[in-house]
Nucleic acid binder design. Structure first.
Lengths: 209, 209
DNA sequence: GCGCGCCCTAAGCGCTTGCTCACCCGCGCG
DNA sequence: CGCGCGGGTGAGCAAGCGCTTAGGGCGCGC
């Protein structure tokens, strides 16, 4: 098999299971192009070119350019929701679970920053029904984090006057990693994850730390 | 010292001094259009239409569509830098200055979230020289915040193991407000500013809070 | 060995894009 | 009153866009 798959399906190669090889190559090419130039500045010829195919080949596997974006956005949001619900359902104190959620969520945004950039910043290039479907997933993402924080407040671990607002801030902080992270930068994804987990814990912890 | 004053030229109507009225109307129309649909998805006909003029009128006042974006980005970054250096040079403890910086910076991103959206998320639609000019301003923005945090560490007010990383996180948190803030949402710009100032202080403060 | 279906390509259609150009209107001045 | 000139328009150009269509090669069942 010539498909180099790193680290199972998880964070290394997220498009492992996309069906025919040509369709997968087109998806990967689209992710790169959308992340680099933005959805609207990317042409179908550019995507096909990166995949080593003719422009018409794209339309054998996808109905429109927007369907490509939808596919990327859907897979990315599924993965994000999976990461956060896994952390929310995990064991340990609320602080443990929040730290784990932030650490893995940030790590994903850093490691997969090209994918994440498309997932997080190209939302309103989606058509109305597709966007509505994605927004539903995002509500789930918000709920997972809010649940951890609310648990911590209930148990007296956290001191958070504004739970929805703080949830928003935590997610915003994590998501924005995709905007500034660069693989050539000074920090590894693990380092950013650890740094951010610490910062978030300080944002929510009761005074006796 | 000329502290942040809202009204007049400040946060209400940022394009007050743009020279001929037609040029200003075009700028404002461009800000709205870029913020709503993104730079690449916006047509010159759309901008001109919003300003109530013919497409050709745009080219009397601006050489290209990119020059419009550059103008917007330049004015926005100047304002952001001004807000942060004013807070950094202000009086009081490092905690006072950091809280003031975050509060006014966030308030600007919320109140002017259409402008801020263009300023913060449309950077790489700029041409190379224009982008380089803007990046220089961004280094100044980073330096202003880092200075406050470093001062707080030196004076023992703050406990921050990673000053550059925390600076990045603070700025990232503030900037991302422009992405999610909506005037129709539950919070006013003042409320978000106060919430965020509190969260940031907890991120950096030494344990005895 | 031959027809059939699956991928893929070359060519191109209809439309929109950023931008230009020939012309025109209204106003201050000699 | 005539005249120039800065700010505006309507029409349109060349290029590039998303997407379609007619056809070609190739492997597989029979």
């Amino acid at each position: 098999m010539r498909t180099v798959e790193r680290a199972a399906d998880g964070e290394g190669a997220p498009w492992g299971e996309v069906a025919p090889e040509a369709a997968r190559k087109l998806l990967v090419a689209a992710v790169e192009a959308f992340a680099e130039r933005g959805y609207h500045a990317t042409t179908t010829r550019d995507i096909a070119g990166r995949a080593g195919m003719s422009p018409a080949a794209l339309y054998i596997h996808y109905k429109t350019k927007e369907e490509l974006l939808h596919r990327i956005s859907r897979v990315g949001h599924d993965k994000a929701l999976e990461i956060l619900t896994a952390a929310a359902d995990g064991g340990g104190t609320a602080a443990d679970r929040l730290a784990s959620a932030v650490r893995s969520f940030v790590r994903w945004h850093a490691e997969q920053h090209t994918t994440a950039r498309v997932v997080q910043y190209e939302l309103d290039a989606l058509g109305p029904e597709h966007r509505a479907e994605i927004m539903e997933l995002r509500r789930g993402i918000d709920a997972a984090v809010r649940r951890i924080i609310a648990d911590g407040v209930r148990d007296g671990e956290f001191d958070v006057p504004d739970v929805p607002g703080t949830t928003l801030a935590v997610l915003s902080l994590c998501v924005d990693v995709a905007r500034w992270f660069s693989a050539a930068g000074a920090r590894t994804p693990d380092e950013v994850g650890a740094l951010y987990a610490g910062l978030v814990l300080r944002m929510v912890s009761a005074a006796d730390r």
